[in-house]
Every structure is written in structure tokens, then in C-alpha cells.
Design a protein around this nucleic acid. Structure first.
Lengths: 327, 327
DNA sequence: TTGTACGCGTTATCAG
DNA sequence: CTGATAACGCGTACAA
């Protein structure tokens, strides 16, 4: 590794002067600056991040704690957060807890050890302990996707989303509506379910059946929906995520039901996968990319001690495609 | 931030002794150890990673350079690599270049600055410069998904995969076969195409049409396949990725073609999305999770200077589902 | 305008 | 078994 001393030697300057040009601080003569910049280029010099963080107190790193990267929603979120951070000169430290409390604890520890300047965390199942340590250490935090008590949050109104889901079906004349969702420990899923129930209640109805599962993979969702259809036959099924809805479509097909003629299906998220089925999935879209960007903006404001930004307007949008129809 | 001195003071020991118990090195009396461990717990002490790396020369961090996290394949890959690294006591520094050379250069710089102990890189479009700097700095590297000249690689045999794609169709009696793929600058995609062409040539055939696009999103792939179908009418289409195949299924449906009766479609990867369509997609599966784990194993061996492990056996597997049939 | 010297938090060496 | 102390690479008062 080439270090600041090597550059100083090569450019015939002192390390202080090199530091000045590298950091653009203080006065340096044009000639000296040119010589130093040349040396930096030739030796591909990178100031050691650890030493720099130690000295300056800032690591220019932001921790990003997500439940999983292999769930497409979080992969997309991680991507946008990371790009937004990069554009602002920060480095993302992306961690995926695999929904395990031990992993979460370990990662929180790693973030503390890395002296991250801030943390963006999304939907970690078992919060509490981890968040507490971060807060205790005075690290600025922004919650994404799901709110965390006492913390700034950037999340869509999942309850309102649930209402939209139910409302759309109600408007189409459906009265017998089932709900399928996973993972059941996810707060957003629970909130959407509450929204659905509330909207239905407004029409004097209740879901004819609700099936929540722990696993959010395709096969688990399909099985869940299949079990529901084996018990009652609603005219419509709401998936609390696109994944659940896609599972429902398959369960319906497995039972010889034609979507949307025999059964309407609607999802939530509008992931790319919502367009993969035929007919394509009707769903309520949440603006993942805006969520990521807003979270970064908010965190940076917090880190810079700026006045708290007003909560972002995150619009939910009903995307009518082919899986819902009049009863 | 609580530091080693705070622990020393609280436990009535010297920082040297604290360091010993924290690192499990050297002799420490049971009583002293207990006092120190208690203090560590009470103050939630984390050794500063920067200082530690500076002193020890190892950051216990591994750089993971991917083209994008919002492409499900890479999201899954990132997840497995990260979990495998975590299990071995390493921290992943996940970077997604968004397929931009500037981002790649910046991230390589960041990795150098962080003193990563090794790097796992996948399918970055514009390699060369970045890799060169890493190699020059003596950083152990393992390539995943696509090989890199002169570097250890963990990747499936894409050419063989291409042959399997063509072979399956040939076995079903197809003779008029089209190919749709994206992104065109991806080496794996090119290799699969070469494999397809080779296998077809073995039967005295050539693809009736090949359409490669720059974008790998759903809509782009659908348009690509639609353009192909507007020109010729093959009895089967090969997608060089599942995404391309799903696009082809939709293009076919848009033209009133029934899959697989009028048109067989096959993909590559076996992402979760391969099961979302109805009928479900026939595809050649590559073992993403094994790839990630093998890459980590190899990198650690390299880092520890162990003898090079033999190249991993990464089996491709034809998964026959519903989108292919006899002509 | 440039250089010297100190301290950031750790680990490892060497005495005691 | 324990404690001083010298690096590690960098940024920055302060002196020149």
C-alpha cells in the first residue's frame, strides 16, 4: 500500500503539504500541487480510510441494515439507497440479517466498530436490542419501510395501502374476499391487513378468510392460498405482497379457476414480478426508489444536524392490470 | 464511543491487559478476565475497526463488487456471499457499480482505502482498469459468474449451458429455434449464445433469428422477443436468461400464440421468477448459492495462502416445467 | 507557503 | 501474569 509518506518523498514535499492537496484544505503553491497530484496519480495513492476515520472522527460510511438481500424488494431498496449514498460521497455498509437476531446483533456491533456516521434500517423483525445500542451510541438512524418508535421514518402508509386494496375490490362488486399474506411477523404486512379489515368493516364486511404464513417464498405462498381455497371460495383474494398474490394465482390455476373470471387477485408492492404473470397482476405500487432516496436525504440531514425535513410524501398508486375484474 | 482506555480504567487494568482478553491472546488471570469482560459488556465496548486494521494490517473485510443489486440474480448472489463471509468472521463490503465504469473505479478506490483483505467480483462489464489496480495492490481476487483473465474464477460453464438449452429443444424435435437475450455486453450471455450456436451447428442447424438487447428489464426483453416474432415464426425460443424467456412468453401471448403448443420457451438461471408464469418456465438451473459459497471458500484459501483449491464442480441442471413441448 | 510534531485507538513487544 | 510503550497512517495546530 502506498501511503502519504511515499507521495511526500516522491514529490519532494512534506506529508502536511500532501495532506493539504489531497483534502483541498489550506494554501499550496500551484507548482507543488501539480507535482503532488502527479505523484498521487502515478502511485495510485488512497488515504487509508481507517486512519482517516480515526483522525477525523467520521468514516463517511452509512450502515444499511436489511432483513435480506435475496428478497427482491430489499435488493432494489439496497440498490437505490446505495446509489443515493454514493452520489453524496458516502459509502454504504450493507448488511442483511437473514432475519436472525444474532446476525442483527453482530452487524450492529460491526457498524459501531466501523464508526458509521449513520444507519438506515428496514423492517428488521427483532428490533429493540440492536436499535437501542445504536441509539445509545448516538448514531443517527432513519427507519425505512416500517417505522420504529421514536425514530425518523420513511415508509409508505401501509394501512392506507390495505384500504386501497379492499376498496378496489369493493368497487368491483366483490363481497367475499379472502386475504393471503407473508411473512406474518412483518409489521407492514400486519398494517396492510388491518387496513383491509378496516375498509371492509366500513362496508359492513369482514374477510371470509385470512391466511398468514411465516415464509414468504413462492411455494409457501402458493400453499397458503391453496389451503384457503380449499376451505372457502371467495370471489377475490388479496395478497399482502405481490409474492402472496402470485401464489394465489397459481393456487387458483391449480384448482381450475380462471383469473379474473372466477377469482380476482390483487397484490401489493408492484415489484417487477407483478408483470410476469399472465394476465399481469393488478397491484398497489409503492415507490421503492423514492423511499430509498428520501431515507438517504433524511439521514444526511440528521447527520449534518439540519432541521428535520418534513415527512416525505410517498404516494401509493393502484395499478390496474389484468387480474381483477367485476364479480 | 467507549474505547479501550475506558474499559481499562473501569476494570482497574492496563490497556494491554484489556487488549489481551478482547483478543484472547496471552495469559490473563481468571479474576482480571472476569472484571474486564464485565466492563466490556456494561459499556458495550467495540474495538475501533479502523485502529485495529491500521495496527494489525487486516481489516477482516472483503469487497464484493457486483453490477447491480436490483437484478434478482445478483441480489441472491450478494446474499449468499455475505452470509458465507459472515459465518467465517468476515465482513462484506458490498458495492454495486450500476454497470458504470466511474462507479467501478470509485468503488475499487474505496476498497483499497478500506484495506480490504480480498475481493469477490462478478460480471462487471468494464473490467480491466479496476481489476488492474486491485492486482497491482496485491489484493487476492476471485471472479464469480464470469471468469476474468488470470484470476481464480467460480462460474458455471455457460457454454455448456447454452448447449443444454439447444439440446433440450432439439430432443423435442424443434428445428426452427430463435434466441433472445440481454444484456448483450454480458460475457455469460455471449457464451451461452455461443454454446447454443455450437450445439445447433452439430445438428446442421443455425438459429433462425438472434436478438440481443442492451437492457435486461422485463419490458425490454418482451419488446425484443416481439420484434423477433414479427420477423420469423420459430417453433421455439431460447432466452439466455429467465428474464428474456419470460419476455418471450409475454410476446407470444401478445400475438395469440399458446405456449407450449404453438411455441416452446426455455430460459436460463432458474430464478424464483421462473415459477411465476403459467405454465411455469422450463429452464437450465445454475446453483447460485453454491457459487457464492465456493467463491468465498476460494477467496479465503487465497487469502490464507493455502494451496489453490481445485475448481468447484458446479452442476447445471435442466428443470423441465411447462413451457417446452414436442413440436 | 511549507514543515514539525502530536494524538487518534489498537496491538504487539519487551520488561518486570 | 501484568503494564509501559512503540508503531500503524493520517490530519492539523503551530512554528518557521
Amino acid at each position: 500500500m502506498t501511503k502519504i509518506r511515499d507521495i511526500a518523498k516522491r514529490a519532494g514535499a512534506s506529508i502536511a503539504t500532501v495532506s493539504r492537496v489531497v483534502n483541498g484544505s489550506g494554501y499550496v503553491s500551484a507548482g507543488m500541487r501539480a507535482r503532488i497530484e502527479a505523484a498521487v496519480r502515478e502511485l495510485d495513492y488512497r488515504p487509508n480510510a481507517g486512519a482517516r476515520a480515526m483522525r477525523s472522527g467520521s468514516s463517511r460510511m452509512v450502515g444499511v441494515l436489511l432483513p435480506a438481500l435475496d428478497v427482491h424488494f430489499f435488493g432494489i431498496l439496497a440498490h437505490t439507497v446505495e446509489q443515493a449514498l454514493f452520489a453524496r460521497g458516502y459509502q454504504a455498509m450493507i448488511c442483511s440479517t437473514a432475519e436472525s437476531p444474532e446476525h442483527e446483533a453482530a452487524y450492529v456491533g460491526a457498524m459501531l466498530a466501523q464508526q458509521v456516521d449513520g444507519v438506515i434500517m428496514a423492517a428488521v423483525a427483532s428490533d429493540g436490542a440492536g436499535v437501542g445500542r445504536l441509539v445509545a451510541a448516538g448514531v443517527p438512524i432513519v427507519a425505512v419501510d416500517r417505522a420504529l418508535p421514536g425514530l425518523a421514518a420513511v415508509a409508505v402508509d401501509h394501512h392506507a395501502g390495505g384500504r386501497m386494496l379492499a376498496r378496489h375490490l369493493l368497487d368491483l362488486g366483490h363481497r367475499a374476499i379472502g386475504v393471503v399474506g407473508a411473512p406474518d411477523h412483518s409489521a407492514p404486512v400486519q398494517e396492510r391487513l388491518a387496513g383491509i379489515t378496516a375498509e371492509l368493516a366500513g362496508a359492513g364486511l369482514a374477510p371470509v378468510a385470512v391466511r398468514l404464513g411465516a415464509e414468504h417464498g413462492f411455494e409457501a405462498c402458493r400453499a397458503l392460498a391453496d389451503a384457503l381455497l380449499g376451505e372457502v371460495l371467495p370471489t377475490a383474494i388479496i395478497g399482502t405482497t405481490d409474492m402472496a398474490a402470485i401464489g394465489a394465482i397459481h393456487a387458483a390455476a391449480g384448482r381450475g379457476l380462471v383469473v379474473p373470471r372466477d377469482l380476482s387477485v390483487i397484490g401489493f408492492d408492484d415489484l417487477p414480478a407483478a408483470r410476469y404473470t399472465i394476465p399481469q397482476l393488478t397491484t398497489v405500487a409503492q415507490p421503492v426508489r423514492e423511499i430509498g432516496q428520501a431515507a438517504v436525504e433524511r439521514l444526511l440531514a440528521l447527520m449534518e444536524g439540519k432541521p428535520a425535513l418534513p415527512p416525505p410524501v410517498l404516494a401509493l398508486r393502484l395499478v390496474e392490470r389484468g387480474t381483477t375484474g367485476r364479480v
